[in-house]
Design a protein around this nucleic acid. Sequence first.
DNA 1: GAAGTCCAAGAAATCGATTTCGTCAAGGTC
DNA 2: GACCTTGACGAAATCGATTTCTTGGACTTC
Lengths: 323, 323
Amino acid sequence: MVTIYEVAARAGVSTSTVSRVLNGAKVSAESERLVRAAAEALAFTPNRTASRLRGRRSAVIGLIIPDIENPFFTALARGVENRASAAGYSVVLCNTDEDPEREATYLEIAVAEHMAGVILAPADDASDVSRLVAHQRPVVAVDRSLARADVDAVTVDNRAGGRSAAESLFAAGFTRVACITGPSSVETAQLRMAGWRQAATRHTGSAYLDDLLRYADYRVEGGRLAMADLLKLPDPPDAAVVANNLMAAGALDALHDAGLDTPDFGLAVFGDLPFASLGRRGIRVVDVPARELGEAAATLLLDRIGGDTSPARTVVLRAVELK
Amino acid sequence: MVTIYEVAARAGVSTSTVSRVLNGAKVSAESERLVRAAAEALAFTPNRTASRLRGRRSAVIGLIIPDIENPFFTALARGVENRASAAGYSVVLCNTDEDPEREATYLEIAVAEHMAGVILAPADDASDVSRLVAHQRPVVAVDRSLARADVDAVTVDNRAGGRSAAESLFAAGFTRVACITGPSSVETAQLRMAGWRQAATRHTGSAYLDDLLRYADYRVEGGRLAMADLLKLPDPPDAAVVANNLMAAGALDALHDAGLDTPDFGLAVFGDLPFASLGRRGIRVVDVPARELGEAAATLLLDRIGGDTSPARTVVLRAVELK
DNA sequence: GAAGTCCAAGAAATCGATTTCGTCAAGGTC
DNA sequence: GACCTTGACGAAATCGATTTCTTGGACTTC
């Protein structure tokens, strides 16, 4: 490992001068030339660990997500990365597998590693970020908001998305529009469902919609079971709003099993299903702007890292209904 | 930020003693009690940066992949993470977007950040890891091997996989089995194709297979075009081996456009398409064991980090044909 | 009781880059 | 020519944990 001392010795200057050259402070042209030549010759790479210890800042952003294999979160990660790397930060991606304990471990690591900040897609809205907040380290919640109000958050307008999904099905002429949503404990699931309920109430006049509503688990299998169950109704739905992409894959399977298919059966889905385009014909997709969520979160975080101390904000992005 | 000095002061001992307690060295029961109480009271978290500077090791593994939005690589990442976190290491995921320049940047960072080691899915087999090797930092190539022979690698038996994919189509009664593979410059594409050619030659007796072979780009659009092109042949194929998951999605689209579908048209694909199960009916999937690749790579890397200095190895996993 | 052994624990050096502070010389002003 | 400013740059302190070296007291052993 080549150190700054060796570079200094070879260039015949002090370490201060080497450091100045490296960090763009004022030095004579001659010193600069000598230092650069020496650094080049020795293939010197500054030790970031040492520099960080002294400098207190870390140029690393932690991104903690519950499921690295869900395309929604990878798209989000991409957004974070774009913004962060443009600003000279690297992104450390941590996968919690929806496990609050692993999440806690990673949050702990984020403090101990002196990360500049953390973007958290919380496994649970009770996620404990107090340690980070106590250490004055910026945190931004993304996708779901946290229980505490003093943390920035970036979410999408889930209720409007749910409403627009349902509306578009009614507009297309479907009359019995069901809803398959996520766990009742999860904020996004509640809001998407609420949007559906609002539209459905308006169109059907009836507030008794519960037989067309199913709570599932945001996973493929849950979507399959929920759809199969709906199709067994005496008066089954002719369309459905599905609250996330994975459940939609399951729901489609269940439709096929029952001999049904889109677009005769109307389907509106939250979130894209990449690579599944073949089955997507006639499916309405409410585009949850995952990448934009990531970008917005990163922007917010970078502001905070830059010293912005204004009160916590919540940014709400619009979910756009695509074809 | 609470430091070890404050803990020492509160406990009425020296920093050495605090450090010893934290690292499990010999101390009296009384000192231990005092230190733990003080650390607890002050919510002390050791500063990893400082500890790393002194200790020279880093408990972080870099994982550099070309495309975070490709499910193959996320599954691989999952495998790496499982192994690494069981061994107490965190994984930093870096996305190069197939850009050799970004890859170079991340490799540079890996050196500068003192990462314990790097697992690299090379964007290009000429990827330059000399810097890492020069700094004695362990590197493992995964999925594709590197040009240099002194680096461990974990790959799958692509040729056998290609052969088995084609064989299974012939066994099912198809007679004109085409092949859509990746860029000719990419090792995995060549080998998968070679396996197909071997099986096809054996079954058809003819070595003139080139009209049934298409090189594409491992992306959705390339698969679509290649399949569309194949279907225009005077004597079109009745089945195809497709060398990766993304191209298969495109190929399926092209089939639909031509009014064809599986399982009447035989399809065998390298790699799974999560969430696309609906289209998977009757499709043969050659399971590229992405997660296992990641696990094997991590195991190898952890061995090296642990001091294993035996000559470089290449581990070849079997690609298993499913369904 | 003198000499030797052990062990807990403090003092201080260390890792490598950054940064403050002080020095010295060149140039400017009256 | 005396005095002040300015600028380049080196010496040394600093960040916080680890580790080596040292010390001093308790305990053995003959």
